[in-house]
Design a protein around this nucleic acid. Structure first.
Lengths: 199, 199, 199, 199
DNA sequence: TCTTAATCGAGACGGTACGTCACGTCTTACA
DNA sequence: TGTAAGACGTGACGTACCGTCTCGATTAAGA
């Protein structure tokens, strides 16, 4: 059915692929983003530049792929959020976890780099949304929907909007470094959102 | 007292400064951001590269300065928001204006470029916040405070948080292109925020 | 007696060998010499690169082999020059034939390529001399020796030197494109040489 | 009169030019010719690659320029050969000197490299002939013409041909390494040529 | 009005990284 | 088993910009 064109070299392919993504991750984490060059990634991965260009069209794509690869381990098993019945408690848990993630310096650098690339490349952004952000948002919306059914949220609440009001302020504070990311801040976002969409 | 070094050439200085900022603005607007190089700006402005480096430390700084210069016309006169007494109407007005701004393709490109630079350069981000975002936020907070005094918002409402819940979702939708920026969307952000911080 | 190693792939071997040499010849003839790459030869011959490297150590060797193969048809039968008894007439014939060869554009390109490789690789040069130039020179010297015996050349004439004085000027004019290769030029080389080594 | 387009930076220009030519000469002399890369020349000269490409279109051109620069010291003063009145003695002197030049390993490498480039690039060959070979040949022909007037050569002798018969065999022996370059060989070339063009 | 020194445009410079090409080796699938 | 196909690590190619430097040619001020 599929058009086979030759031997697949799958073992080498996979090995070099992993080396490249690991190198990209390491460099983004350790260095200034300007120092993350295709040549540096290739050198670090012990790989020729051509092997990178054979698979990805640009440095941006490699960096995004490096992030996506991190969550491909959990592949197959769909993401779900805790549902203890206590909506506020569950949301606070998730928001605090997010705050913690952003506090990790190497995660900070990686996400910041990825975010820069996504902002300027709609194609990459779409891929990112489809593979990573989409499923996550879906899981969060599922939790909200469950709360809605339980009468903890207004029956006509716009759940997409609710999600945005929860997360966008947090993300933007981090992105623009316009304020501290504290547990209290996370909590107050949850409270304000719950008030806005209360039954 | 002051060290006299010769003629001040202030007219030439000002002329080339304007030419550089205009060229930067034009290039960011017309081209892919990768094509906005210092050499291109210099060529477009009819200026030597050194004249750019004499004033700004990097391309990023020039681009940010180009945006800041746009709003320096309104310099001196402090920004104020309409205050008709009808809080919802006033906020809807402002939010819809913002939506329109983001819809303008050349403004979109300029802000996107500036945002990229701010994300990766805290110093620039601070300058931007001080000169542009700060005053604007202050004006918005002033309007909220006035509403609060009028009993239209909870007396213990966190106005900074309210601001973020209003704007962050809009900004992030635009930045990540994760949804349409419509009037209805702007309105529903206002409504949700007002519910969250109602008295 | 012979060590049998398996199926006799000699037919495939010979077929691919011919394909490679033909492809090399064709490419040298058609393209700029920089474009004659091992990859191009392999592609043109419908052969894997390894099949080339299994037989020859370098592109140079392939190109030289391509030229040598051209004259391997006459293999076994030793080369001889015409001997009509009229030395001048015989030499003029040979020299004019050489001039004509050099005038053929595809022969020109091939010889020029081979000459470049020989200049920079003594090993190849030795092989070339042994297989191609040597026998030819021997045949020419045989004709001169016959003339010498007939008293048409000085009995103490240095025949190697005579050969060089006949051919080197012609070859160098061609190699350096330092003058036209005409019949008259060929003839005057013969005349001058005959004067130099007359009895 | 001439169209001046800007500052001439002549000091830097000249300094880098000399550094590049010296580096090229050194590398050709020391290394395999394959190792003489534009990058290596640039590194050795302490110069950016662009500075080389700004002046010469290819490595070949640089190498040829490196040789030409060697004889630009004698610029202005036209080349002349000794003229003692004894033609044979004068020619023997010149031929032996040439033999010695070819015996110098670093000169050998340089000329071999230049010769390879000239063979494959008619434009470079023309430049070389105009600037170096031409004047030299003219000087040699002048010596022959003087001998011709003195009745030491046939009055109808083709001096261009005589020159070629003197030099081409020597050069080709060296190029193809097809025989030893000895004093005796040089002498016998002179003798044969004198016999061929005797009055 | 005429120096005179800061400033400018132009663009060459030493570099770094780009993305491409071909090298010679290695791996796989097929015949 | 030997071959075609082609991926791989390597390293040079020629180009684009970086940020610095050097050069004349404007300026506009004060002598």
């Amino acid at each position: 059915m599929s058009r086979e064109k030759g031997p697949d070299h799958s073992r080498r392919k996979e090995r070099s692929r992993q080396a490249i993504l690991a190198a990209a991750r390491a460099l983004v984490t350790e260095e200034t983003y300007e120092k993350v060059t295709v040549e540096a990634i290739a050198a670090r991965a012990g790989v020729g530049k051509q092997t990178i260009y054979r698979r990805w069209p640009s440095k941006s794509a490699v960096v995004v792929a490096a992030l996506l690869a991190l969550s491909e381990d959990a592949d197959g098993q769909s993401v779900t959020l805790p549902d203890t019945g206590d909506l506020r408690a569950d949301l606070v848990l998730v928001m605090r976890a997010t705050v913690e993630e952003f506090a990790d310096p190497s995660f900070d650098k990686l996400i910041r780099a990825v975010n820069t690339e996504l902002t300027n490349d709609p194609t990459l952004a779409a891929e990112y949304r489809e593979k990573l952000a989409g499923p996550l948002d879906e899981a969060k919306k599922a939790r909200l929907r469950s709360a809605q059914k339980a009468g903890q949220l207004a029956s006509d609440a716009d759940l997409d909007l609710a999600l945005e009001m929860l997360y966008a302020p947090l993300f933007l504070r981090w992105l623009h470094r316009s304020g501290p990311l504290t547990t209290a801040y996370a909590d107050s976002l949850v409270d304000a959102t719950l008030r806005a969409f209360a039954p």
